[in-house]
Amino acid sequence: MGVMLSLIAVLVIVLVPLAGSQVSGLQYVFGVFFPYAGFAVLLAGFVFKVLNWAKSPVPFRIPTTAGQEFSLPWIKQAKLDNPSTTTGVIGRMAFEILAFRSLFRNTKAELRSGNLIYGPAKWLWLGALAFHWAFFIIAVRHLRLFVQPIPGWVEFLDKIDSIMQIGTPPVYITDVLLIGGVTFLLLRRLLIPRVRYISLPADYFPLFLILAIGTTGILMRFFIRTDIVAVKSLLVGLATFHPFIPKNVGAIFFIHATLVSVLMAYFPFSKLMHLGGIFLSPTRNLANNNRMVRHVNPWSYPVKVHTYDEYEDEFRDLMKGAGIPVERE
């Protein structure tokens, strides 16, 4: 049910601009209003969400330690997996965010004739890494459509990405990785019973949405060509806050733009916020220096304890009988 609903939702998001952009006045809605609104919601929502998380304090220092701690001088510390310094934490976080180190650790358990076997399981890591990096590079690459002149490094990125020189215009490596990655993530959700069992509509929807974004983008580049100069002038107009709708921009562009707008607006209210959350995750971004540097709990309050005096009052006779020293005879 979650699958169908999500798919239908994305189809609606495709169909509305497909039909609507035929009406000349509505093009402004899909080409200007939605992108602005989507971007504004993304920014404001993202900031709000992160601030809202940050509003809750970190009362305890609770890193998940994944290796040998800082100990005696002759014992080798796992500085990356069990960092005790800020530098170590930055290293750990960098590996976590840029290379998905924890996911790389993944194993697959199987029960074979009464024995548990743990095999390596790198496909999820590989698929996720390909997908995320491809998505990021594609987003950055799009800068060439928003700024004039195009910065050298964006041109360079573009050149590297199309270095295979297959077809005209050349196929981007990241396009293949993105579509491949999303398809893989979608298929494992649909086909692996356990993953399907834990999946919610909120898991399928962004996958379908991103798949649609990738597909419409590729269609626009290779199959349903639209006037790229017109598209660029529209996007530069958006970026310079002089929005206008040029002639000769095809419906495919408005569909692509609407899908992206919806993704941006959906982002801060969804699980996609793992992008921001990973930076704040207390099991990863804290140093394991607990016994070295005291961590202060901002909401710490005095608690009722059973004091030694109370204890001795209750057990004095027994203690004296057993020859245990007491404070007051």
């Binding site: 969400k49 009362p59 609770i62 916020m273 793992h274 990973i278 704040l280």
Partner: peptide, 24 residues
């Protein structure tokens, strides 16, 4: 507890249900 523990708040929000934890 959501107001007192950033961990709890974030962990309620960001799970993507990738399933890596399932057989751990």
């Amino acid at each position: 507890r959501l107001d007192k523990h950033r961990s709890f708040k974030i962990f309620m929000d960001i799970c993507v249900r990738c399933g890596a934890c399932a057989d751990k």
